[in-house]
Design a protein around this nucleic acid. Sequence first.
DNA 1: CTGTTAGCGCATTCAT
DNA 2: ATGAATGCGCTAACAG
Lengths: 340, 340
Amino acid sequence: MPNKITTLKEIAQRLNFSVSTVSRALHNHPSIGLRTTAQVQKLAKELNYEPNQSALLFKQQKTNTIGVILPNLKEEFFSEAINGIEDVAKQNKYSVLIGQSHDDVEQEKQIINAMKNQRVDGLVISISKHTKNYEHLIAVESYNIPIVFFDRVPELSNINKVSSDISEGTRQAVEFLIQNGHKRIGVINGPAEMKSCMERTNAYMEALQKKRIKIDLSLIATTDLTQEKTCQAMEELLNLKHPPTAILTINDYVALDAIQYARKAKLKINKDICFVSYANLPITNYVEFPPLASVEQFPYQQAKKAAEIVFELLKRQKKTEGKPMFKNIIIEGKLVIHKK
Amino acid sequence: MPNKITTLKEIAQRLNFSVSTVSRALHNHPSIGLRTTAQVQKLAKELNYEPNQSALLFKQQKTNTIGVILPNLKEEFFSEAINGIEDVAKQNKYSVLIGQSHDDVEQEKQIINAMKNQRVDGLVISISKHTKNYEHLIAVESYNIPIVFFDRVPELSNINKVSSDISEGTRQAVEFLIQNGHKRIGVINGPAEMKSCMERTNAYMEALQKKRIKIDLSLIATTDLTQEKTCQAMEELLNLKHPPTAILTINDYVALDAIQYARKAKLKINKDICFVSYANLPITNYVEFPPLASVEQFPYQQAKKAAEIVFELLKRQKKTEGKPMFKNIIIEGKLVIHKK
DNA sequence: CTGTTAGCGCATTCAT
DNA sequence: ATGAATGCGCTAACAG
C-alpha cells in the first residue's frame, strides 16, 4: 500500500496548528515556541515528512537543477567532466540534468529548448563540434538562465567560459620531442574550425621556429576524428619523402588509431615513430603502446570550474547586483610524460 | 535585458480574455470560438509562450522526469545504457536525471533519497556491487515511484527487472574454446555475491561436463575488478602445475588487465593463451590484443527495455488498474567472435 | 508566539 | 462561448 506522502497540512491538522506554524517550526523559526517546535519536528520525523520539491520549486521559481549539455558521454573526457559538475552541484544541493548532443546541432537546439522549458536554473555546455551559430545559446541567457561554456567554447567575448589553452602544452610537447632527437614532427590535427586546433598549429610552429627547425606544412594532416580519416592522415604522413619520426595527435582516440596504423605498417612504436597526444585518458592504460606523453587538459577541473561559475552567477542574480560578469577562465594544458 | 517569460495571465490581459479562456484556447478546447482560439494562439506564438513546467508539474503532481542510478558513467557499458534510457525518455517527453553511486552503498542511498524528494516519476537502477540490503530501494515504491532494475539486479521476485542471462553465452564461449582445442579453461570471475558470477561459474561447469572435461576448481579465480586483484588472479592461474590455455574473464576491463599481465609473462596471446570476455566494449577496438570473443550483454537494449517498463508502470498507475505487474525480462547474452 | 491570507501558474469545475 | 473560482503545497507578509 502506498505510503501516503505527508504534507504540512497533514501535520498541522494532527497537531491542531496552522500550516504556517508548522512550516516555521520545521525551519526553526525563532518566533515559534520551543515546545511547539519540538512537537512539530517530532511528528514530522515520525511521518517521514519531506517537503514537496515540486511545490517548493514552483513557489521559489527555481528548479534546483542545472543542465549539462555535452557532445558525448562515451568519451571519457566528458564522463570525467560530469563528475566535476556533479560534485559542485551536490555541494549546492542541486541536481544535474544531462543531455547529449551527439555533435549534432539540431539535437543541441532541442535539448537546450527542453532545458529552457524545464527551467533549469543554469546551464553548463560544451558545444557540438559543428555549432557555428550561437543564437540558440545566447537566447537562453535572455531568459535569465546563466550559461557557462567549457572546453568547446564559442569565440565570443561577452560570455562565461572555461577552456584549456593547449598552446603551452603543445610547446612543451614539441620541445620534449626535439630534446629526444626528433627533427621531423608531424601533426594530426582536427577540423580547423575548432579553436584548439588553431592553437595547436600555431604553438607547434612557434615551438619549431624557436628551435630553428624548418617548418614543413606537409607534416600537418587533419582528421575529423573518425578512424577512417585518421588512417588517411597517417597514410599521407608516412608516404612523405621524409616521413615524421614523431607525431602529435589531437586526442587519445586518434592517437590509438594512428598507432594501430603505424603498427600495421610495421613501424616500431617509440623506435621508428613516437606519438604524443592530448587528453591523457584512462583508456591509454589498457593499451600496449600508449602515446609517449600527453597534454593533460583537466576535464574534471574545467567542468568543476564551469559549474562553480554557474553558481556564482546564480548568487549574483539573486542580489540583482551590479554589472554583468564575464569570466574567461583558461586552464593551461600541461605535458605529462608517461612512465612505463 | 531579460526576455520576460510569458504566462497565461500576460496573454489574457493583452487580449482582454480570462486566463481560463486562454488556457482552453491553447489546448484547442472545442468550446472556445475559432476566432478567439486563433487570436490567442497567434499571440502566444509571438510572445514565445511556453507553459511553466514547474507549475504544471506541481499541479499534475508529477515531474516528467525519470531518475537513473548506476554505478559509474565511465564504464562504457553504462554510458551505452544511458542512451537506451534517453531514447525512450525522449519519446515520452521525459527528462533523465542521472546519478552515479560509484559502487558505494551510502551514495546510492543518498541519491535515491534525493530523487525521491525530487519526486522523479520513476526510477531505473543498476545497483552498486556491494548492495545487499534492498530496503532503501523498495521504500521508493511505497511512494508510488515505480522502480525497474537492470543489469545488476537484486534477487527478489516481486520486482521489475531486466537483466542478461550469461549462462547461454558462457556455454557458447566454453564450447567455442573447446572446439578450438582448449582443454584447460580458466575463469577470472567477480565477487560471488554478484548473481552473474554464479551464472558464469555454473554455466562454465555445465558446459565442461557436457563435453566430458574434468572440472578443476583451481582453474577458477576471482577478482574484485581492480587491476591489482586481477593480476593476482592471473598469477594464481599461471602458476598452476597445468596452467590454463584459455581464460574467461568477467568483463573487458579485466580482460585487458589480464592480457597485459600475460604479455608481461612473455606469453603469446592467442597462441600460448586465449581470452574470452564479457561485454564487448568499444574500448577493445583500440587494443592490439583484444579478447578472441566476447559474450555481448546488450546494454543499450537492456536499459531501453527497463525504461519502457517504467513507462508501462506509469501508465498503469494512472489507470489505477488491477494487479501489480512484475516483469522479469531476461536478455540472453550471445557470444560474438571478433574478426581480425 | 501563532493564525490568517495571499499568491506562485495552471487546468478545471461550476456558473453564466 | 466565456468568466470566476478553486486548489495543488508551500512560504512569507501581515495581523493580531
